[in-house]
């Protein structure tokens, strides 16, 4: 059990750190847009690089935040009936959903994203605009890494939900603060 909890903790801490760091790029995004507008209007300077940088930054923000958003249980649910379900039923839904829906989805995306990034790297792909940003494989690699982390977070959720079923302790449920690492038997 402590091993499982350690894994969950490690994954979720990583997701949070990556997500929080990535989110700071929003400041750079706002800055880039402003610089772009000012350069164009005050100095008649249109930089394709800066326009492309905008979606690159935005993409990094999204991909780095996916996992932590999941960890905080912030992906929206239709709770019409969900709220009325027992703790056990909810945990079963998470276990089955993660194993048969989420993981197949994210694992296939991760694998394909890896081939996309690798192929792009092999070609040295850049922007189709001659003066656009070079190294498009960077953002494709970020897509791969973001999905990989998203998948890891899914594994953490799976372990959490199994722990809920095994121990009946709701603190193991997705989005909850984990109990201190103590033998499972201590909990009612």
């Amino acid at each position: 059990m402590p091993v499982a909890v350690t894994v969950i903790r490690a994954v979720e801490r990583l997701a949070t750190v990556v997500g929080r760091l990535g989110s700071l790029l929003l400041i750079a995004l706002v800055g880039t847009i402003l610089v772009n507008i000012v350069l164009r209007y005050a100095f008649n300077l249109g930089l394709i690089e800066l326009e492309e940088l905008q979606w690159h930054l935005n993409a990094v923000v999204v991909m780095t935040a996916l996992a932590a958003t999941y960890g905080e249980d912030a992906h929206v649910r239709v709770d019409l009936f969900h709220d009325g379900f027992s703790q056990r039923s909810k945990a079963w839904i998470e276990v089955l959903g993660t194993a048969f829906l989420f993981l197949p989805f994210v694992v296939t995306l991760t694998l394909h994203a890896w081939s996309m990034a690798a192929y792009s790297w092999q070609l040295g792909e850049g922007s189709p605009m001659p003066s656009g940003l070079p190294a498009r494989y960077v953002v494709k690699f970020v897509m791969f890494a973001g999905f990989a982390l998203f998948g890891l977070q899914g594994v953490a959720v799976l372990i959490r939900s199994i722990l809920v079923l095994a121990t009946g302790d709701r603190r193991y449920a997705i989005g909850h603060a984990l109990p201190e690492t103590t033998p499972a038997g201590d909990h009612p």
Binding site: R40, N44, L45, G46, E51, E52, M129, P130, S131, G132
Partner: peptide, 14 residues
């Protein structure tokens, strides 16, 4: 063609 326009001092927008 976008590069050509830039050479002539235009600012090119995507």
């Amino acid at each position: 063609a976008g590069e050509v326009m830039k050479k002539l001092g235009a600012s090119v927008v995507l």
